[in-house]
């Protein structure tokens, strides 16, 4: 009897690498050996710099996915921020202009949160509608063309500055990943997000403030989107309605490639880390090998589906078991 009572803390305190971690390591080794100039320090730094915006935005997406939702409006929201920043910086100066941009993004995330939490819209519909609305709004403000900013050193610092020898975007990405990790695994709010994402009805029955958790979850995620938007604006030094139209899809893809199951209630900063690393390394290797961009997209698409299939425990790669006898007999009965 006493054997039963000893708590098995099997998964606690032991570092286990996610399957996606191994994939990332293998890619790193393979590309270093086979792709010329890949392993050069300058190139690796370049990869990290290019990946950092996606990593920060994916941190926000990760939070939404843990809540059991999806956020499609982040790309459109970042584009609007870039236009707002370019318009306000000449009047208010760089810090205040960037702050206004950040507030716009966070405000949009808050509104999405209100729809989802208090009006029971699905996040898919709420954020899809917001995405289309924002795209229209941004084009109306900018008139369809990129608006150039005066590329002062201050304006460009977020994208090109360095802190302690580390590029600023990379440092911010690392901080974001750490922050998201602490939030999800060690904070009370992160625990509430897990509960709500895992089973909303049960969370209500257990007395969890479900609506507030949804609303603030969206808003905090908006904070990460805002940071990504600021770095992007600084990088392109212009306001562009077409800044990152695919950001939402790429962040969801990053989480999926990183091994996350998108059903809600579960998620880890490592999913973002490995997913983004895999995407960034493949893109970089493709550039170094002079592969045309359609080929890059073909590869990326294949890898998304392939890695998710490989990481799903019960998936049947060959599709034979999709209609198991059990399911068929069930369908049989219900059609009677």
């Amino acid at each position: 009897m006493t054997e039963h009572r000893e708590i098995r803390r099997s998964k606690q305190g032991r570092l286990r690498l996610l399957p996606a971690g191994y994939v990332a390591l293998v890619l790193l080794v393979v590309f270093s050996l086979w792709v010329p100039r890949f392993a050069a320090v300058g190139n690796l730094e370049n990869i990290a710099k290019n990946a950092s915006v996606l990593a920060i935005a994916a941190c926000g997406q990760l939070l939404i996915l843990v809540l059991g939702g999806l956020e499609f409006s982040i790309g459109a929201s970042a584009a609007l921020a870039s236009v707002v920043i370019v318009l306000t910086v000449p009047e208010l100066g760089v810090p205040a202009g960037f702050a206004v941009g950040a507030l716009v993004v966070i405000g949009i995330a808050f509104i999405n949160g209100v729809w989802v939490a208090y009006f029971n819209l699905t996040s898919l519909i709420a954020t899809l509608g917001m995405m289309i609305f924002l795209t229209g709004l941004t084009s109306a403000i900018a008139g369809g063309l990129p608006m150039e900013a005066v590329p002062t050193k201050e304006f460009l610092w977020l994208a090109r500055g360095e802190v302690l020898g580390l590029p600023a975007p990379v440092l911010l990405a690392i901080l974001s990943l750490l922050l998201v990790h602490v939030l999800l695994k060690h904070s009370t709010f992160g625990r509430l997000m897990h509960l709500v994402g895992s089973n909303r009805t049960a969370a209500i029955a257990a007395g969890t403030p479900v609506r507030r958790v949804m609303l603030w979850g969206f808003t905090i995620a908006g904070g990460f989107t805002a940071l990504a938007a600021l770095i992007l604006t600084s990088k392109v030094a212009s306001g562009q309605p077409n800044l990152v139209p695919n950001l939402a899809y790429e962040t969801i893809a990053a989480c999926a490639i990183g091994g996350m199951q998108l059903n809600g209630g579960k998620g880890h900063a490592c999913h973002v880390l490995f997913g983004v690393a895999i995407i960034a390394m493949i893109n970089n290797a493709a550039v170094l090998l002079n592969l045309p961009s359609p080929v890059q997209q073909l590869m990326l698409g294949t890898i998304i589906i392939g890695s998710v299939l490989a990481q799903t425990k019960n998936s049947n790669l060959w599709g034979v078991g999709f209609f198991s006898t059990k399911k068929v007999s069930h369908a049989h009965q219900s059609s009677q």
Partner: peptide, 20 residues
Amino acid sequence: QTHGLFPILPALTNASASLT
């Protein structure tokens, strides 16, 4: 199943859901 459990979360998290 529908009103009580958080299926994929650990037993301990399930137990402490009302105690956050």
